Simulated assay, not measured.
Amino acid sequence: MLWYHVVFLALIQGLTEFLPISSSAHLILPSQVLNWPDQGLAFDVAVHVGTLIAVVGYFWRDIYGIVKDWFAALAGGQSTQNSRLGWWVLIATVPAMVAGLCFNHAIEAHLRSIEVIAYTTIGFGILLWTSDRFFANLKAIHQLNLPSVLVIGIAQAFALIPGTSRSGVTMTAARFMGFSRDAAARFSFLLSIPIIVAAGGLKLIELCSGQQEFAVDWQALLWGVVLSAISAYLCIHLFLKWLSQIGFLPFMLYRLALGALLLWLVKVS
């Protein structure tokens, strides 16, 4: 990887992990469209570490309250909004974990094409805007319950398909059920923590279990962690700050434009 590959891919991972535009699609496309070398598992692990640092750093107060109250409730203490939110994050994570274990290899083998990414980018972009435009904007994050959490969790499982966007599909599901933009985004970001840990852990296991010897570019990995962490932190902050004003329309328009460009590339190739 050249230095600008490292910078571009780290910034793209940091920005797209939490925006509803699909980080997996944007990391796949440079190698397929620009003929860049595949960044490799080690770099994937590094940028996952960076985005994890960003989301934990941004929500550390929330995470501390959730973990403290969850363990207190588990030990027989009183149930609180925070302890229930801890359960909701864990429960909503299960469908994606199960789907990943069952279908990850099939998806890797058959659904990482530019054409698939184009159609999922367009389709789920339209669903995102529809949920935001035509459904209520009333419920707060503490109004989550088991049925709504299961719906969001099942929706998150679809993010295994490149181009879907984990943050986008979970926010879409929440908005369809009447949760506010802020509530949908905050729960989606909290929900990203176990998913990033799981995805990064699986890649790390694959990396450590590989039989082939290779040289690790530690400088590239360090820059990957730093740049993805900084860009992800800024992305979370600005997204939550501006979301109530701009809504999801700009993201749908971006997804439509990207999807159309990809379909054109497929046609002319």
Rank of each mutant, 00 (worst) to 15 (best):
W3Y: 05
Y4C: 12
F8V: 15
L11K: 02
L15D: 10
S22E: 00
S23D: 09
S23A: 10
S24F: 00
S24P: 06
A25F: 01
H26Y: 05
H26F: 04
D38G: 04
Q39S: 07
L41I: 11
V45C: 14
V47E: 05
V47H: 04
T51E: 11
G57H: 12
I66P: 01
V67K: 12
W70K: 06
F71T: 15
A72I: 07
L74W: 15
A75W: 14
A75E: 13
N82Y: 12
N82P: 01
S83H: 10
G86V: 13
W87M: 15
W88E: 10
P95I: 04
P95Q: 03
M97Y: 01
V98R: 04
G100W: 15
H110A: 12
S113D: 11
E115M: 06
T120D: 00
F124I: 05
L128T: 00
L128A: 12
W129S: 08
T130P: 08
A136Y: 14
K139D: 04
A140L: 09
L144K: 10
N145F: 05
V149A: 12
L150P: 07
L150H: 09
V151H: 14
G153C: 03
G153P: 01
G153Q: 10
I154Q: 02
F176C: 04
F176V: 00
R181S: 14
A183M: 02
S188G: 07
L190D: 03
S192E: 04
P194A: 15
Q212E: 10
F214K: 10
A215S: 13
D217M: 11
Q219R: 11
Q219E: 10
A220D: 02
W223D: 07
G224V: 09
G224L: 13
G224D: 05
V225L: 09
L227F: 04
I230W: 03
Y233L: 06
L234D: 00
I236A: 05
K241D: 02
L243P: 14
S244E: 15
Q245I: 14
Q245A: 08
F248S: 02
L249G: 11
L249E: 13
L256S: 04
A260I: 13
L262I: 08
L262Y: 09
V266R: 13
V268E: 06
